[in-house]
């Protein structure tokens, strides 16, 4: 490491913040265009699905605990349990399976 860490941090913080702030400050009105409106409606579903799978399978110490967490979360989410319940139950499932295996 020879660069100044504080300059690195400042550069990355600035770039990351601008990416987040520019759309949120510039797009102020409700979008009426049907295509853009529909596109933005689908954005969270696609981005979150892509980030979750297959990444979740390699998130824990082994594949089996990861699968247990994944399936637990899927089931509870399917039965409309809240964010907190789904999230914590997935963690517990991983913990229990790793205790057994």
């Amino acid at each position: 490491m020879s660069g100044n860490p504080f300059i690195y941090i400042a550069v990355m913080a600035l770039v990351t913040y601008l990416i987040r702030a520019i759309p949120l400050t510039l797009i102020r009105k409700e979008i009426k265009n049907k295509f853009i409106k529909s596109f933005l409606y689908y954005v969270p579903f696609v981005t979150l699905a892509v980030m979750t799978f297959p990444a979740i399978l390699t998130a824990t110490n082994n594949l089996w605990s990861a699968l247990a967490g994944f399936v637990t979360a899927l089931l509870l989410a399917y039965f409309n349990k809240g964010l907190f319940a789904v999230s914590v139950s997935a963690c517990i499932a991983v913990f229990v399976v790793e205790l057994i295996i």
Binding site: P44, F45, L48, A49, M51, T52, A55, I56, A59, T60, N61, S65, A66, G69, F70, A73, L74, L76, A77, Y78, N80, K81, G82, L83, V86, S87, V88, S89, A90, C91, I92, V94, F95, E98, L99
Partner: peptide, 24 residues
Amino acid sequence: ERIISALSVALYGMFIAVIISPAR
């Protein structure tokens, strides 16, 4: 390490909660 491993799925669990219930 066990605790870290277990907590590592917390965020994915949230993502799943957000997308699965409307998908149903």
